[in-house]
């Protein structure tokens, strides 16, 4: 037994902390890598399913309803329509933006399924279903969907 003893606690032990840390190295699959390279060039390029002809943005390696691989790349527009949205008003762990902000499902022109993104340059109360919005690009060359900083009302804020 140890001679010195610095432990003076007498209350029962009821819990302990268990720190875990796992480091991963992730490589973007080819379909995602293509999309992100296009994003760097300020282009939104989706993929079309060879069976149902639906266009997905971000592109999908496999059509989720037809289970076939999608190879054909399709240039989408930089504007779209708000399918639906919510206003995030609470802070939470892991959050990137300062609330309140509008999180919307946007159907980009030339695509068939909505993209989840942020709507900016407009008061949350002013956002409506069916509103037309356009991409505002970030100046930084981010190889992620954050290259589009947010979407704003088409033609800029009135």
């Amino acid at each position: 037994m140890s001679d010195s003893d610095h432990t003076h606690e007498t209350a029962p032990v009821t819990r302990f902390k268990a720190p875990t840390r796992l480091d991963y190295t992730v490589t973007a699959a080819a379909v995602t890598a293509d999309f992100l390279r296009h994003i760097l060039e300020q282009r939104l390029v989706g993929r079309r399913c060879p069976v149902c002809a639906k266009v997905y943005l971000p592109p999908r390696g496999v059509c989720p309803t037809c289970a076939v691989r999608c190879h054909e790349q399709v240039e989408a527009g930089h504007a779209g329509t708000i399918d639906t949205f919510s206003v995030v008003r609470i802070p939470f762990e892991g959050q990137v933006l300062e609330p309140p902000y509008v999180c919307a499902r946007i159907l980009i022109d030339g695509t068939d399924a909505p993209l989840l993104h942020i709507v900016g340059e407009i008061a949350p109360e002013e956002v409506t279903l069916g509103m037309r919005v356009e991409a505002v690009w970030d100046d930084r060359p981010l190889p992620t969907l954050a290259r589009v900083r947010y979407f704003r009302p088409e033609g800029g804020t009135p």
Partner: peptide, 27 residues
């Protein structure tokens, strides 16, 4: 080797996402 637009396509494992892996084996 997975199905491509013009027949089988050879890809490195990292090039495929999970859905593509699943598609290849289930098909």
């Amino acid at each position: 080797s997975v199905a491509g637009p013009d027949g089988p396509e050879l890809l490195t494992p990292a090039a495929l996402d999970e859905a593509e892996m699943v598609q290849a084996v289930t098909a």
